[in-house]
Nucleic acid binder design. Sequence first.
DNA 1: TATTGTTATACTCTATAACTATA
DNA 2: TATAGTTATAGAGTATAACAATA
Lengths: 147, 147
Amino acid sequence: MTDISSAPDSLESAVTELLRATGLLLRRLRAESNPSELTWSESMVLGRLERSGWMTAADLARAELVKPQSMGTTLAGLEQQGLVQRRPHPTDGRQVLFGLTDAGAATRRGRALLKHRWIAAAIGRLTPDERRTLIAAAALFKRLAES
Amino acid sequence: MTDISSAPDSLESAVTELLRATGLLLRRLRAESNPSELTWSESMVLGRLERSGWMTAADLARAELVKPQSMGTTLAGLEQQGLVQRRPHPTDGRQVLFGLTDAGAATRRGRALLKHRWIAAAIGRLTPDERRTLIAAAALFKRLAES
DNA sequence: TATTGTTATACTCTATAACTATA
DNA sequence: TATAGTTATAGAGTATAACAATA
């Protein structure tokens, strides 16, 4: 089942095409993004905190598939912008809990998608069937990433 | 048709989910990649040169959706590894054509996908239907990126 | 000894700006 | 003046390594 060598050529080209297309989409998104707005990583963290509530940096790192040190950098940036705040863990003195500030929650509600206005418009132009394909693919991506 | 404000909530969540899932997949791929192998950008350029033959840096940059200076950096790295070579343009002294060396072609044929062994295995574990969804999504990504 | 978090440093990828050479 | 390419610099995103504090 997991033996790639027995897979048909179409699998190899599917992988190649998927990676190439994903890379191109990412570059396009970067080109369309506005430097004055939240970065990609920052948006991901705000969204995670909105959905999951207070979390430690280590848990955030695990959820977002980055190293704790990298998450620390992202959190420091968000903290400096006043979008997340910290509070001590009630029982474990090593841990620090991070959560949204009011400003962070407001940003999340009101402006989180501004950065992705271009992709939202582009997806809006697709047919309902094509949109369904994207939604299904997103679920598959998530499964692949977390498998 | 392109008015986002009239789009249903499901569109907003589709965009959010797609971007989050794509980001997570990318992080997983980076975590699985081997630093001793070709980088993502390098693989993309080798693949492009294999399919399109000799190209100028400017044309490569346009095709790959990056700025010419960025493409110059990537090409310099590939040249230093002996995977691409340059030759002067026959009529325009400003232009330089880039193409694969024998080593570059061999790398492309034999080892280009080693870097993505993990994702190939993961996709191999999907059902045929799920694989079809990914292939369809890849085509949509390409259209979105180049639209 | 293991875990949480921080600091220091480096690498990848890409960008903008300023330059030279050629058209 | 416009285009191709180069060089210098910067920023985002992430990594590894070394450390301090706490469990």
